[in-house]
Design a protein around this nucleic acid. Structure first.
Lengths: 192, 192
DNA sequence: TGCCTAGTGTGATCTACATCACACCAAACT
DNA sequence: AGTTTGGTGTGATGTAGATCACACTAGGCA
């Protein structure tokens, strides 16, 4: 995809929370780099350093934790217009505990922690943007935790179908199961 | 507790992430109000508006969701030096879906959303502070979700004892169970 | 003094869900 | 054309943990 088009996506995304002049946005975007990945490729790998936060332009990814027994738990799914990283490792600049992989060909814009902090310190609006984003993410995770405590597998599944219908169509059920913390067999037995 | 002492706690707390001059801090603290609550009292009640984010000076509180069957799920526990609120309702200025109650006498400093946003827009350091706090909270919740997916009740319990030993001592097991998403009977059967 | 409430332990039973095992199908590589 | 890979369904069986029921203790309050 054309770099210009990619930045347009980013501009629209920022525009949902803040308004930047073209000059300001040009400056902001100069701190991002663009990358492409193929299906099955790793953006982040357990044990390796995490260089970037990724803004998804195109494609579908997951961040997941693989435990000692080789069982995989999906922490996050991400598609167009979403951000994804191993945030624990990214913010603390430690090694990844998660894997991030593509299950479609993917195009992302990459933001290093240094550039993120630089932009935040230089531009109040950017700091505002990321603060709001983080708050929203916190709330979303709280809802997910409540869902774990309060709902059965079937209820969580239907909730997911409702909230993210587009995701549910693109993501194989096996992975939805892993996101929901249910075995794929159990999910398969649930009425659609 | 003396108001001066309360603000000292807050100052120390801010000091962990940012440094403010005495004048700056005086200005910041003027946006907080102090309140006391007795054991069993509600700070936030399901269905009511949420006026504040609360910084705990003293005491022990919980935020919890009570479902239709009257079953309670604890979303957050908070003690000295922690913040607590119904953030979904607070940030979106909607009605609470959670209850927040004390199980000890409590003293808090209260910050309205308007004052929070005012401080954030006026003082870069404050916005930085809350951005970092939110990031840290996000990461903590991710860990809790992984714990739900990857660990048994017994493992989650021992993890909790390790990470928050002080909490585990002050909070009755019945409530720890509810925080962990386990029945109190099951928790009671786990070897300490 | 006696009652009430909060917190805890423990047995018996029930159930949601995991696990194991196998079979089927479609797309992708070779 | 044949084989591997990824996704899915479904039966049989096992188990962690929920639920129900009851009993015990200690502190707060009438």
């Amino acid at each position: 995809m054309d770099l210009q088009v990619m930045f347009d996506e980013l501009k629209t995304h920022f525009g949902k929370l803040i308004s930047l002049t073209p000059e300001e946005f040009a400056y902001v975007s100069s701190h991002f780099t663009s990358r492409k990945f193929r299906k099955h490729q790793f953006l982040v790998q357990q044990g390796a350093p995490v260089m970037h936060d990724f803004f998804v332009i195109k494609g579908l990814l997951k961040s997941s934790f693989v435990n000692e027994q080789g069982k995989e738990h999906i922490l996050q799914l991400a598609m167009e217009d979403w951000w994804i990283s191993d945030y624990q490792a990214y913010f603390n600049q430690t090694d990844a505990t998660l894997d991030i992989t593509c299950f479609e060909d993917v195009e992302v814009l990459c933001l290093s922690l240094a550039n993120r902090e630089k932009l935040c310190s230089e531009m109040h609006q950017i700091e505002y943007f990321f603060r709001k984003k983080s708050n929203a993410g916190y709330i979303a995770l709280q809802r997910r935790i409540l869902s774990f405590m309060n709902h059965s597998a079937a209820e969580r599944y239907h909730e997911l179908l409702q909230i993210y219908p587009s995701l549910a169509q693109r993501v194989p059920k096996t992975l939805l199961a892993s996101y929901l913390g249910v075995s794929r067999e159990t999910l398969s037995r649930l009425s659609a």
